[in-house]
Design a protein around this nucleic acid. Structure first.
Lengths: 153, 153
DNA sequence: CCGGATCCCGAAGGATACTG
DNA sequence: CAGTATCCTTCGGGATCCGG
């Protein structure tokens, strides 16, 4: 009997989609979420500092300008485009409050939060393995330089 | 005393790098690994079918043409470029065997394998949540269409 | 002023042909 | 087989303008 939730069944072992196939919708979806701005937006919305005074994991919300500031270097065009795409896919909600200067809040949905757990891993991986990668690059570049020098003289 | 390995210390809690800062090297690294071809290459090299007759998790190796076939739709240019970049960063090894038609094998390093665990999550997430995303898109698009109709007449 | 749409341009990515 | 070289198309960034 099925003791699993629908979500568990979906997330597990179901292979009606194959992300390696060029024509498969899941391939397009993987392409979307494997995007630097998508990853950064999800990280920002999920990681948002303070653990909330109420103690829970209430879906955090950030304003457009907050996101723009946190994701240093993002263009408004890409930020808006990325947010719209994520909203359409149901990963986050967009709430417009018609205050004097209009206020727009973005927050992760449950689906978005589930993806955030993964993208967050990428962020911490990048920070945690930066030194190792840097060392590898140096060794690799030095070896390439040595190769060039070897033919010399 | 430190009971952690150097790798654990590195991967954990060290925040000398901040991926949100535009100028930080880890931001550039995050941008690189948040790339669709990088994710697919890592998935392909790590997931490679048979669990090996020797039973272990011996680093799998795939030939260039195998990868090209598995990652349906990739251009040689991007595949080569991606592989070179990953090699430079120490995520995979490139082994050239000067047989009659030259043979080039690619395999994950330990560092690459550690990242593979994360990218693999993205692949399974995409496949597992495809239905949910598709449903959200339909609702979103329908709502947008309704909005347009609402202003009508 | 905030949030975002638009236009223009340079850079990144794809298709194809050719080479060791 | 495993690339490199050459186009050419598309996408992303910067600046500017708009709606509230």
């Amino acid at each position: 009997m099925a003791t699993q939730t629908a979500a568990q069944q979906r997330a597990q072992a179901k292979v009606e989609y194959d992300a390696f196939l060029a024509g498969c919708p899941s391939r397009a979806l993987l392409d979307r979420i494997s995007d630097k701005w998508v990853v950064l937006v999800l990280c920002a919305l999920g990681d948002d500092t303070e653990p909330s005074t109420s103690g829970g994991d209430v879906p955090r919300s950030m304003r457009y300008s907050q996101l723009a500031r946190r994701l240093a270097g993002v263009s408004q065009k890409m930020l808006t485009q990325t947010l719209r795409s994520l909203e359409r896919d149901g990963l986050l909600t967009r709430t417009v409050t018609p205050t004097v200067p209009v206020t727009v809040e973005y927050a992760l949905t449950d689906l978005g939060a589930s993806l955030h757990r993964l993208t967050r891993g990428l962020g911490t991986w990048a920070q945690g393995n930066m030194d190792a990668v840097l060392a590898n690059r140096e060794r690799h570049d030095a070896a390439a330089g040595a190769d060039v020098g070897a033919g010399d003289r």
